[in-house]
Design a binder for these strands. Structure first.
Lengths: 346, 346
DNA sequence: GAAAGTCCCGTAAACGTTTACGACGTTACA
DNA sequence: TGTAACGTCGTAAACGTTTACGGGACTTTC
C-alpha cells in the first residue's frame, strides 16, 4: 500500500536500490534484484504513477483523443478499437499505456486538448479525423508535444502522419466500375471539412476525367459517416429521377456500408443485383450478402505502423525506430466480391 | 512552462498564496485572487497533474475500462459514447475527467485492472459487461476503490450498480408478441457468461410460463452482441424447419438489431412483414425500415445516473449526492413501431 | 603492498503541487 | 491601552519516486 519505502524496509535495502532493481538499472546484484522482484510481486507492489511521472517528467501514457456523445463523427466504433489493438502491441514493448481521452460534447475540443497537454496527462498524442485546417496540429507542434495524425491535413508542420490511400480507392473504384460498364458512379463525401473529403472527391474527379466521363456534382452524396448516413444516401438515390441515378457507388466507411446495404434493400435496389457497391472491408462488413467487393486493410497493422511512427519521433524511443518523420499513405488491395455486378445485369 | 513557481514570482507572491487563490481557498484577498487568476489565464498556466495528484492522493480522473481489438464484446460502440456524455456532464461540475482505459487484447483484463488501480491512475472506476461471477468486483471492493458497475452480477459485495430492466423487456416483449398472436417467440442470449444472459432468459421463461406457452430451448439464439451476431441469427432462423421457426423475436442490442434486419431481408423474412422484431431503441436503429417497435431509453440520462451514483460513494463528493448505495434497475418504455405485426399477416 | 579498478549499495536532492502552521498587521472590544 | 480576533500571506513539510553522486569492500594490476 504505502509504496517503495515499505518494500525496501522489508528487504533491509534502501529505496534507491529497490528502485534500481525494479527498473532494470545496472548497478545492482543479480541475486538482490531477484529478491526485490519476488518481494514486489508477492506484496503486489506497483509504483505510484504520480510520484514516478513527477520525477521523470514523463507519464508513460499516450493519449488518443476522441469525442463522446457524437454519433455524428462516427468515432468510437470498431474501426478504432482494432487500430488501438495494433498500437498497443507496440506500446507493450516499452511499458507504454494507451488511453482514450474523452472530450465531452460540452467542451471545446481545442480547449480540451490544451488542458490535457498542459496538465501533462500524456507524453504523446494520437489525433484522427484531421480537418483540412487543423488547429490541433499547430498547437501540438508549438508546444513540442510528440504526436501523430491519422489522416492528412493542409496544416502541415512537418509532423508525422499516416493515411489511407483514398486517391487509390477512388481511382481503382472508378476503374473497376467503368470496366463493368457503369457510366454514372456515385461517391460519398463527409459533411464536415475533414481533409479526406477533398482528397477523395478530387481523385474521383480526376479518375472520371481520364476516362472521358463527365463530372456531375449531383453524384456526390454528403452524409455523416455512420449507418444512418449510408441509409440516407440509398434513399436519396432512389428519390432521383431514373436517368439521373447512379448505377454504382464507392464509399470507404464500414458503418456507412451497413446502412447503405440496408437502405438499398429497402428501396428495391438490392446490392449486387440492381446496384453496384464498392467499399472498404471490415470485420463487420464481412458477413454482408452479397459479399462486398472491397478494399482490404489490416487495421491492426495500421495501428502498429501508427505506433512505430509515433515512437520514432519521441526522443526516449526513437533509437529503436530509426524511421525519421513518417508521412505515409497506406495502400489497399481491391478484393473481388459480388456487389459490383456489371451494369447490364441491372 | 515551469509551473506555479514562475507564476508566483511574476506576481511577487508566494507559491502558497497562488495555489490557494487558484483552488478557491478562503484565506486570500479577493483582489489578489483576481490578479492571480488573470495572470494564470494570460500565461496559460495549468497545474501539473503529477505534482497535484501526488500531493493530494487523488488524480481527479475516473476510468472506464474497455477492451480493444474485440469486436466480440460489442464494446466501443455508440452505446458507450452516449453514456459517457451523460457521465461527463455530471463530472464537469466537479472538475473530474473521464478517460477510457484501454485494455489490450493481449493482456489479461483482471491483471490490467489491478495494474491500473495500484498505479493510482484513477480515483474511481466504472465497469461494464459484468460477468455472472466477476473478479473485478471482489478486487475493487477489497482494495476499497470507489466504483460502480453497469450491469448486475452474482458477485455482490454491496456495491452500487445500475442495470437495464431486462426482466421488464422480456416480459413486456413476450406480452406484446403473444397479444399479436405469436406462439413461438425467439430470444437472444450472449455467448459469454455475462450476467445479463441469465437474467434475460429466466424472465423470458417465466413470461412464457405465465401464459401457458412452452419453453423451447431451440428458441434461444446465442451469438455475439454485434451486427454479425444479429445477421447470423436471422440465417439460423431461416435454416430451421418451417414448423420450428419462431415468428417473432426479442433482442436488446442496437448493433445486433441492424444486422438482424439485414439478415432478415436476405433470407426473405422481411421484418414487419413476415417476421416480428422487438428491440431497444437507439440513434442508429432509428432509421430502420420498417420503424422498429422498441424499448426507449435515454443513454445520456443513464450516464448521468451512473455518475451521480458513483459520486455518492466517493467520500469527497458524497455530500452533494446523498443517495446511499444506489442499486437500481432502469425501466424502459415500449414504443410502438411497425416491426411487430400480427402473426396472421405473415 | 599500494594504486587503480570494479561491484554494489546508501544518501539525498529533485520533480510541482497542496496545506498545516505560524507570523504579521489591522481592527474591535473591554 | 492591552488583548483578542480577524484577514492575509509566507514558510516549509509532505506526497512517492528516480537518479546523480559518493563510499565501502573487494579484486586486480604493476
Amino acid at each position: 500500500m504505502t509504496g517503495i519505502r515499505e518494500l525496501a524496509q522489508r528487504l533491509n535495502l534502501s529505496i534507491g536500490t529497490v528502485s534500481r532493481a525494479l527498473n532494470g538499472k545496472p548497478d545492482v546484484n543479480d541475486e538482490t534484484r531477484q529478491r526485490v522482484l519476488e518481494a514486489a510481486n508477492a506484496m503486489g507492489y506497483v509504483p505510484n504513477q504520480a510520484g514516478r511521472s513527477l520525477r521523470k517528467g514523463a507519464t508513460g501514457v499516450v493519449g488518443f483523443m476522441m469525442q463522446t456523445g457524437a454519433q455524428i463523427t462516427g468515432e468510437g466504433d470498431v474501426f478504432f478499437m482494432s487500430v488501438f489493438d495494433g498500437v498497443q502491441t507496440v506500446f507493450a514493448r516499452h511499458q507504454l499505456d494507451l488511453v482514450a481521452l474523452l472530450c465531452s460534447s460540452e467542451e471545446d475540443p481545442d480547449a480540451y486538448m490544451q488542458r490535457v497537454v498542459a496538465r501533462g496527462f500524456a507524453d504523446a498524442l494520437i489525433i484522427s479525423a484531421t480537418k483540412r485546417e487543423d488547429h490541433r496540429i499547430d498547437y501540438l507542434a508549438s508546444r513540442n508535444i510528440p504526436f501523430i495524425a491519422l489522416g492528412r491535413s493542409q496544416t502541415d508542420v512537418g509532423h508525422p502522419w499516416l493515411d489511407l490511400d483514398f486517391e487509390g480507392m477512388a481511382e481503382t473504384g472508378v476503374a473497376r466500375l467503368v470496366a463493368k460498364g457503369h457510366r454514372r458512379i456515385g461517391i460519398f463525401a463527409p459533411l464536415d471539412n475533414t481533409n479526406l473529403g477533398f482528397v477523395f472527391i478530387e481523385a474521383y474527379r480526376k479518375a472520371l476525367e481520364q476516362r472521358g466521363l463527365p463530372f456531375d456534382p449531383d453524384l456526390i452524396f454528403r452524409a455523416h459517416p455512420n449507418e444512418r448516413g449510408g441509409h440516407d444516401i440509398a434513399h436519396a438515390i432512389a428519390a432521383m429521377p431514373p436517368g439521373k441515378q447512379p448505377t454504382g457507388f464507392i464509399l470507404t466507411n464500414e458503418l456507412m456500408t451497413l446502412g447503405f446495404y440496408n437502405g438499398l434493400y429497402e428501396v428495391g435496389l438490392p446490392p449486387g443485383q440492381k446496384f453496384a457497391v464498392i467499399s472498404r472491408d471490415s470485420p463487420q462488413a464481412h458477413f454482408l450478402v452479397p459479399k462486398l467487393t472491397s478494399f482490404r486493410l489490416s487495421l491492426r497493422d495500421l495501428g502498429i505502423a501508427l505506433a512505430e511512427a509515433l515512437l520514432a519521433t519521441m526522443p526516449a524511443y526513437a533509437a529503436h525506430y530509426p524511421l525519421g518523420v513518417v508521412r505515409k499513405i497506406v495502400p489497399l488491395e481491391l478484393v473481388d466480391g459480388d456487389s459490383d455486378m456489371p451494369v447490364s445485369t441491372g
